[in-house]
Amino acid sequence: MTEKVIVSNKGLVRADFNFWVGKYMDKFYDGLEQKKIVGNKCSKCGDVFCPPRSVCGKCNENLPLDQNWVDLPESGTLQNYTITPYKVTDRRTRKVKDPQLIAMVQIDGSNTAIVNRLLNITPDEIKIGMKVKVDWSEKTTGAPSDINGFVKV
């Protein structure tokens, strides 16, 4: 059978998505606006979640919204990392001059890790277990962009 193209569809779809972060993440973002990192704690196993959450999956415990909030420091431990020669926000563009470093950082006093960029650290210096701290954006707005990334302590 010969190949015959009958249909060639071209189209543009616009999709407006809203996402509700919920009351727990609201508190987290409120904290960021004041350049503070907050988490919450499971009263049963003592695990501290950063970002905070309403349920501890390990214990099947609901963490009440008005209890067990923990103020966490802005320092943390680098648990894992990767290095990419492409721009993180736009992989289609050409390679960047300096490699981008992305890391999972466990904020001190928490049992979870958050992912962000490493700033002013060279690939030679990077090491699992190294101490890093938050680099705050100059003007905070209560959004993920309040954290520029992590820098060496």
Binding site: F19, W20, V21, G22, K23, Y24, M25, S54, V55, N62
Partner: peptide, 12 residues
């Protein structure tokens, strides 16, 4: 609009 919860919290 249950904007007070995210999806897993609604399920919970």
């Amino acid at each position: 609009k249950r904007s007070d919860v995210n999806m897993p919290e609604l399920v919970n």
